[in-house]
Write a protein that binds this DNA or RNA. Sequence first.
DNA 1: ACGCCCAAACAAGTGGCTCT
DNA 2: AGAGCCACTTGTTTGGGCGT
Length: 290
Amino acid sequence: MPLNKKKKQLLNDFANQSDKLFDLGIIRTDSFTGEIGEYVASEVFKFRKTDRVTRAVDGIDTKGKTYQVKAKVIESDKVNYGIGNLDIESIDYLVIVYFTPNYETKRIIQIKSTQLPKGKVGISNKFLNSITYNSIDGSEVKLPASKQKEIKKFGELYCLLQSEEIIRSRRIVGDLGEYYASQELNLTLNENKNEKGVDAYDKKGIKYEIKTRRVYESGRRTGKSRRLNNLVGKDSKYLVVVALDRSFRCAGMWLIPMANVHNPKSAHLQIVNTTPGTKRIVKSRISWLN
DNA sequence: ACGCCCAAACAAGTGGCTCT
DNA sequence: AGAGCCACTTGTTTGGGCGT
């Protein structure tokens, strides 16, 4: 069953709404949670966001204090959050923004970097009880009304994508690619989302790995070099590459024998043009991909 | 014995660097 | 331009440990 009209409309709305957040300067990439978290923190702590690629420091406030911001969507009140490789020497504060699934701010925690252990940081109630920190309830967070409204709308659309069963997790691109591939190739999606290297099976039990990229022009990316990383050691027989357009519609699909992929560690997306044995499943609407 | 906490593993993605 | 690395990010599941 292909996507019905309602679901297509929902994907359109989601694409439009994410572009709106982009135009408003709330997000700069498609890491929605992290970007919205940085935005909320920048309003709360009145800091200026650093450039997209700046290491460790996400914001600098008027007094020159530096912030690292983490954001997490939670359904319960659990604060648990493991953070590895935190560079506490480079920052004054660690800020964690907890969101509800529709991006209402639930709680914000601000910890002085001097309270943090070196290396890995495990945020938990136990840890928080052992230090002094600042906790802000979501109800105290005031954003400009216009932006608050658009974030809320975005969050509601995100939740609808899940409740309408268009996506199974909060990974939109990967989930949709698996969905399209299962439709086109008559595959059964792997229930076990954690099994390494296998996303789906066909009727004969042959294994497929599905990789998806959303390919379209926007200011979100600096280069057009796109990769399919970490295919090494995956024992699927076939690699399915799915391209999505801006509206998350399928804009190309290829079936590639995994054994023919030359650079499985870090393959360029263009392998769909050059790899021997590649079968085109859905005609590409992207000029540089065939 | 069970549930909660929590760390680790696994997954998916962007993009930088060097060499050819 | 592409191969082969790497660093760094967010997000989800799992299974061990521990207290009630």
